[in-house]
């Protein structure tokens, strides 16, 4: 899903690879990605589940306004993954409840 060629923008291929886990599976993204953009590039669109009906949810606004992209990151729930930069070794999980602090 990465853009390879673009008439105006230049997305460098040689960016640093960042390793992280999604639902315990090892995956990779690039330096400069947000968690949501890295997941989307891997074809992962479902980020959370709605609280009551457990409907799948992806991101919607990608600028931190709507909370539709909330996930559990390193044990911390309700992280807006569309505005959180990806870091080496992050543990990212789909969130399906209101969110508790997991220790």
């Amino acid at each position: 899903m990465r853009i390879k060629e673009h008439p105006i923008l230049n997305f460098k291929e040689e960016r640093k690879v960042i390793h992280f886990t999604f639902n315990n599976c090892p995956v990779t993204g690039y330096e400069g990605d947000t968690i949501a953009s890295a997941l989307h590039a891997l074809g992962i669109k479902k980020l959370s589940e709605s609280m009551n009906l457990k409907r799948p949810r992806g991101f919607y606004c990608a600028i931190g306004n709507c909370s539709s992209c909330r996930m559990i990151v390193d044990g911390e729930p309700n992280v807006k993954t569309c505005v959180t930069l990806l870091k080496e070794g992050m543990d990212v999980k789909v969130q399906s409840n209101k969110g508790e602090i997991y220790d």
Partner: peptide, 22 residues
């Protein structure tokens, strides 16, 4: 609310800031 349904600004951010196709 299905994943894959995005706001236009979100699509623009994903493509033009992060280089990922929606």
């Amino acid at each position: 609310d299905l994943p894959g349904i995005y706001g236009a600004g979100a699509v623009q951010t994903l493509m033009n800031v992060y280089g990922v196709k929606p």
